[in-house]
Design a protein around this nucleic acid. Structure first.
Lengths: 338, 338
DNA sequence: CTGAAAGCGCTTACAG
DNA sequence: CTGAAAGCGCTTACAG
């Protein structure tokens, strides 16, 4: 069917090894030979067979991206991470194997030990991530987008959610707020071990305590009508709250409509502050001040690091756990009180 | 590093071919030999090398999924199609190579002619889709999710958008509506050749004309503040409109908030009817009657067909263009007028 | 029921 | 500057 390197060699009148070297540039080829080979390649529409190349070089130029679509997760939020990973990989000459098999451990083991991928990107990382075990036995390096307690030995990239919480509480404290509601990720995220959930919440609680502020955390929901019910309940439980902090994608996306419906004016009646990315704000028309989550930067940095570890492990050095610095984007949805 | 079939053979005390046959089940193996092999496999943690297997069998058990993230597209909507494709593929033993390279033609050519994939799933299909040309030369079968004029020879699966439009217009006509606004996909979708855009619009216009109804189409936007501005303009241009039909994901997602803000009650002041999936409705809490777009069914059917064409081409028969039947899901957002 | 061997299409020392 | 050959790790006729 498809042309092989042998066909190219025959048409160009050279040996197969010469064609191979012309392709890789790993040794000098005379100008004339090179053009003959080039012509043969074009004439035959030759592309090297990926399997054969992988077998010979032990490299696939494919990265594995492992993620799950959880029921309690807000799908649009996850997509923000997939895109930069995909783009960055391609920019460096890597394709992406997207693995969504619910049997995580097996999927990781299968794809790594069959040498389908040169490296692994983990999304939806949990505090005790079951995928790390099979990964330790793997020959391929891995990078986590998120943070795992058992992540030792792997590069990790995540937002500094503790710092994000402190930034927000400080901001509200400076404006004079004393009574705050916090909507956290759904309870299932905690159960599953999504550490960003409690890293943010615990830091917020601690910081608020330092200021002597009242801060009431409530588990948010990811689906209607739960989202609205939970908001109602949370606000009813804190009738004097002057601000709401939302660390929950589905809830913040539904908030503009909720506030309208309840006749709550922002920031006049209630200051609002969230945790989401610029892109997310765009897509959902969110007019709220927020800590930027920077999925683009995170994805890009993670993939770059992974590729460095694949191609130049000695340069990559020791595993790094990098918490990127959050920044507050003021969209004017908070105001001074008292 | 990783154990090979030779290692397994040695440990089990059999030949490599016997191990291979034990793996594939393609010939009878004595019970005793089988268990020895099984033990050796487990002891060594053996998984067949994917590249070697691909080289020997000309099969990768990988499907290519080709999509673009367009600026003017509402990302969450696209994800609905990715998920069922991924899930269905895995259910049939296939992994998914996700290709988002902006250089479409080259990406298709490269991945098919290097034999990285056994089959191709095309998303974001346009009326004159440039990816079909390289696909004709490919040895792998392809399936389109969407419709292309130059799609002859390929299996295609899409919603019957013409019928969807007629269903909606009929529904509104039966309720006595005579003056309707239609928000279509963004202009760029038309420019790019997204046929679902005009298939829906043209059918709606034609059907409305038959009833002697006024139907005013407006290009919707995909980002704020354009969405709101365009809605304002569209409604202002049809001050007597009693219903709005929204065939635009970003607009329908923003509509609840818009209606609240403008104090428009639905369906009392305005009947609303959309084109979106059950899942989309859930995620965005959309209380609107709509034509179900069935991304799950579409993705699943498409992948099944593709796999049939890969594994049993003689059974697959002639290429099929399947427009799945739309159904109206009544959520009570339309009412009788006049 | 099992084995020895050829072959899939590349890359890369080894030789010249 | 170029070629002949071994080897990557599988599968599968061919033989027994």
């Amino acid at each position: 069917m498809a042309a092989t390197i042998g066909d190219v060699a025959r048409v160009a009148g050279v040996s197969r090894s010469t064609v191979s070297y012309a392709l890789s540039g790993k040794r000098a080829i005379s100008e004339e030979t090179r053009t003959r080979i080039q012509e043969a390649i074009e004439q035959l529409g030759f592309t090297p067979n990926a399997g054969a190349r992988a077998l010979a070089t032990s490299q696939t130029n494919v990265l594995g991206l492992y993620l799950q679509f959880e029921e309690d997760e807000f799908a649009p939020a996850m997509l923000q991470y997939v895109l930069p990973v995909s783009t960055t990989a391609r920019d460096h000459g890597y394709d992406l194997l997207m693995v969504t098999d619910p049997d995580l451990v097996n999927a990781v083991r299968r794809t790594t030990s069959s040498a389908m991928v040169d490296g692994v990107v983990l999304l939806d990382v949990t505090y005790d991530d079951v995928r790390l075990e099979p990964l330790r036995g793997a020959t391929q390096p891995a990078v986590l987008i998120g943070y795992a307690r058992n992540g030792e030995g792997f590069d990790s990239f995540d937002l500094d959610f503790g710092e994000a919480a402190r930034l927000i509480v400080d901001h509200l404290a400076a404006l004079g707020h004393r009574d705050i509601v916090l909507i956290t990720p759904p309870r299932q995220v905690y159960d599953r071990g999504g550490s960003y959930a409690w890293r943010f919440r615990d830091a917020a609680v601690e910081r608020a305590a330092r200021y002597g502020m009242r801060l009431a955390p409530h588990y948010g929901e990811s689906r209607q009508p739960g989202i609205v019910d939970e908001l109602d309940a949370a606000l009813a439980a804190s009738p004097d709250a002057t601000a709401i902090v939302v660390h929950n994608d589905a809830t913040i996306a539904a908030l503009p409509s909720y506030l309208d419906k309840r006749g709550i004016r922002c920031p006049d009646d209630l200051s609002v502050i969230g945790v989401f990315s610029q892109d997310f704000a765009q897509a959902f028309s969110l007019p709220f001040t927020a800590v930027e989550t920077s999925p683009d930067a995170l994805g890009q940095e993670a993939v770059r690091r992974l590729i460095l570890r694949i191609t130049a492990p000695e340069q990559a050095g020791a595993p790094v756990v990098r918490f990127i610095e959050p920044a507050l984007v003021d969209r004017g949805s908070t105001r001074a009180v008292g």
